[in-house]
Write a protein that binds this DNA or RNA. Structure first.
Lengths: 137, 137
DNA sequence: CTTGACCTTCCCATCATGGGAAGCCCCATA
DNA sequence: TATGGGGCTTCCCATGATGGGAAGGTCAAG
């Protein structure tokens, strides 16, 4: 049995976040010592590691909860897990596309900007220009 | 002179956000009518549109403030503007790379997952596995 | 003068995380 | 045994940018 600090080191999840995950119900309440300290065993640490890896893959908390539920469910269908993963891939792709669009617009503007000591700047012109024509449309 | 609601429509920034931008000092305090209503002219609307476009390009608030300052400064060097834009491109690229890495890991796992009604799932195996080998390292 | 839409301020929520204070606990060391 | 330092507890606050909503004032049209 380990304290929350040790579990934090072992799992890579900060003690703050462990308490938060417990508070929000993502993970079950930890056991307590007589004096009120939370206690964690290898199983709990494994759960925390699971959560951390899922978060590292960009899953939001509610999807992590879904993954945890499937993980615990021995009768799950792997198709359900894969669906979640595919949805996450799609979400990532959508956000990547958004950012690529921003990047493309910015690259375009940077290319057009002299970048010297003169004040003339197509970047500012674009940002401050009238609404009829913009790179977004 | 228009009200905050009209300025919101004209600029594409919600009334809530206009007040917030004013409160945080991003934009100067709006004029007020005798009864306390905020008033906006074409110039203020242009500023709001500037802010909105910069936000649409992913600039965080503090960078938008920098851009606004350069916009107002008639003696600016366009190089300073370009630097900000290039930094934003770099920031976007960094986040895109992170998300591409997540996506690659997920795609890998999805490929390995049968996705049928059986419970065996390499995705869950990976998330719940021991810490020695993970896709992140 | 009423009505309804709009404005004002203020508080709360998000999402996930961190910081810090006040107070208790535990272990080691003198 | 006393003491000190570090870890634990809860509680509150902050982020960054946005929205929701309540309570109350204002304006314009009827």
């Amino acid at each position: 049995m380990m304290t929350i600090g040790e579990a934090a080191v072992a799992s890579g999840v900060s003690a703050k976040m462990i308490r938060y995950y417990e508070e929000t119900g993502l993970i079950p309440p930890a056991g307590r010592t007589a004096s009120g300290y939370r206690t964690y065993g290898p199983k709990e640490v494994q759960i925390l590691r699971f959560v951390r890896r899922a978060r590292d893959l960009g899953f939001p908390m509610d999807k992590v909860a879904d993954l945890l539920a499937l993980w615990r469910d021995r009768t799950r269908a792997s198709a359900d897990v894969r669906r979640l993963a595919e949805a996450q891939i799609a979400a990532l792709e959508a956000r990547i596309r958004e950012m690529e669009a921003m990047k493309a617009t910015l690259s375009h503007l940077v290319q057009a900007c002299a970048g010297d000591e003169r004040p003339d700047c197509p970047i500012l012109d674009e940002l401050g220009g009238s609404p009829c024509r913009s790179a977004g449309g």
